[in-house]
Design a protein around this nucleic acid. Sequence first.
DNA 1: TCTATACTGAACCATCCGGTTCAGTATAGC
DNA 2: GCTATACTGAACCGGATGGTTCAGTATAGA
Lengths: 121, 121
Amino acid sequence: MVQYRETRLDASFAALSDATRRGVLEQLGRAEASISQLAGKFHMTLTGMKKHIGVLERAALVTTEKAGRVRTCRLGVRALEAEATWIEGHRELWSARFDALDKIVEHLKSKERADARRKNR
Amino acid sequence: MVQYRETRLDASFAALSDATRRGVLEQLGRAEASISQLAGKFHMTLTGMKKHIGVLERAALVTTEKAGRVRTCRLGVRALEAEATWIEGHRELWSARFDALDKIVEHLKSKERADARRKNR
DNA sequence: TCTATACTGAACCATCCGGTTCAGTATAGC
DNA sequence: GCTATACTGAACCGGATGGTTCAGTATAGA
């Protein structure tokens, strides 16, 4: 039996799974932008881009603010923090296993070398 | 104009966007397991779990090997490496911005304090 | 006031997703 | 050889996704 309900992570990883949205994040990392600017840059209709922004906003990766006609998009504060934490937590698991594997391989190699020396004597 | 085609990342983030699959990764971090064992643990049909494993395998997060009737699943070597790299690369961007923000806030605060002192004089 | 711009929302479409059932194949063990 | 187990594959289902068009509202600026 396993606990598996972390909807915030669901939303963010889903948001990150689209190359256009990762591109938007990259873009917003350089400078804030309006929806129509982003739509232009990614060759997409305004409506299409607005949907992407909606996804990023729901995942709290982006925040937006409307002034007059223009909605300006910015990177969300604390964005990617939870995701990085999750991944790093699990990388530790992996790393431990790799280290163990490395040691075994190293051990085998040194044994091999010893055997070779013995043979050449 | 922006480059946005990195299908490997697409696949992994999509794989990670499902809580069941994240659970499976966690589980496989503790011990390797057969598909039916995983299916049992996550209250799902064999077929359903097999699909999840397929997704994880295509994202190279998991590898499997069939011996006799049983297909054993293990964490993939180098799993999560690319994903962590991407996220960390972008967190740097964020961090830089946060640091800048922190400085501004700090500046405003100290100014506020100075104003308060001046007023109280 | 008129017009161009910027967004918003509804509706539609094809495709994918998470899950199922059901029918099949292959192997372990008596 | 028989049977239970473990997987595989096809087909189906409802709902989400990524995109569009079209029609609307609101605001900036001449």
